[in-house]
Amino acid sequence: MGDGGNFSESTWHGGFYELAIEVGPRDDARLQRALTAVWSAADVQGCYGDMRRAPGQQESVGCTVESLTEFGHVLGQVRLPTGQIVACGCMTIREEGDDPVDWLDFYLPIGALDEAGFDIERAQSYRSPVLDDWLAAIGTAVFHAVDFHAAFIGFETSGCSDAATLGGELPESRRIGYLLPVAGELRYGPANDGS
């Protein structure tokens, strides 16, 4: 079993297992609260900007919206509920247009999960109830800091849906996990469609 916590080239291959959060209207302070809450809830160690250099070989950067803008992401290491330490990161998507929206994407690289011993044959169909529930708990903690619009959990979930499309209702058949505020209360709809 390898070390999924290193920042090697293979760490970042294969896509990402994600908690993609539709934070809400563009707002630096709100996005910062969400980023701080993710890092705290996941207990991420370190904060770095260069995925090509090991954490011990680079200076820390601030866990800030400014760092997200400068480096395109912030990176760290996290202990999964299964005990393995893996590389992780956050990036933001700041939509443009008439009603611009901020997204915050907390991700676990498939390469890091594979290096840590997770059995991932086909990333596109990979699903882990343990990781899903852990990411849902992180999302729930973030919701207490920032009442976000929706969040999506699974392989490459960023951009798969949004709160407006859901219209306040969890889909009955779910290929990914959903966190959706309903009447001020966050509801978790775990993935339930195995196809």
Rank of each mutant, 00 (worst) to 15 (best):
M1D: 15
G2N: 11
S8T: 10
E9Y: 13
T11A: 04
Y17P: 14
L19M: 01
V23E: 09
R26V: 13
D28T: 05
A29K: 11
R30A: 15
T36W: 08
T36Q: 15
W39I: 01
S40A: 14
A41K: 06
A41S: 13
C47Y: 01
R52C: 06
P55M: 11
G56L: 15
Q57G: 12
Q58W: 13
Q58L: 13
C63E: 04
T64S: 15
T64L: 12
S67Q: 04
L68D: 02
H73S: 03
H73R: 03
L75P: 00
P81S: 00
T82E: 02
Q84Y: 09
V86T: 15
T92V: 06
G97A: 09
G97W: 05
L108Y: 07
I110G: 00
A112H: 01
D114Y: 14
R122Y: 10
Q124M: 03
S128A: 04
V130Y: 12
L131Y: 10
W134G: 04
W134H: 14
L135F: 14
L135I: 00
L135R: 05
A137L: 09
I138G: 05
V142I: 09
F143P: 06
V146G: 10
V146M: 07
F148D: 04
A150D: 00
A150V: 03
F155Q: 15
E156I: 06
S158F: 13
S158Y: 08
C160A: 15
D162I: 01
A164T: 04
T165K: 12
G167M: 05
E172A: 15
S173I: 14
I176H: 13
I176T: 09
G177M: 14
P181G: 12
P181R: 02
V182Y: 08
A183L: 14
E185P: 04
R187V: 09
G189R: 08
